[in-house]
């Protein structure tokens, strides 16, 4: 079992390059959504997300 784990660990290291692309995309998309809903300086978005912005202590007004 430990042998299997070691193989899996080694494989994980090699796969870092493969994992990094989806991870970076996830970070990009997550940041985009967060900035959009919490920080965008658009009156439309601000008014729609107003109460949620207050709830999440995003700077508002």
């Amino acid at each position: 079992m430990s042998n299997l784990n070691n193989i899996a660990k080694g494989a994980n290291r090699e796969e870092l390059a493969q994992r990094i692309i989806p991870a970076l995309f996830g970070i990009f998309l997550g940041s985009f959504l967060l900035l959009g809903v919490g920080f965008a300086d658009s009156h439309l978005i601000h008014n729609a997300a107003h109460d949620a912005r207050h709830a999440h202590s995003f700077p508002c007004h």
């Binding site: 796969e15 994992r19 989806p22 997550g30 959504l33 967060l34 729609a48 997300a49 912005r53 709830a55």
Partner: peptide, 24 residues
């Protein structure tokens, strides 16, 4: 408000899971 909360939670989830993916 529901929509904004869902989008916020999706954003945080994506960031967290991206961290999981890098951790591997």
């Amino acid at each position: 408000t529901l929509m904004a909360h869902i989008i916020t939670a999706i954003a945080y989830s994506l960031l967290l899971i991206a961290g999981f993916a890098i951790y591997g």
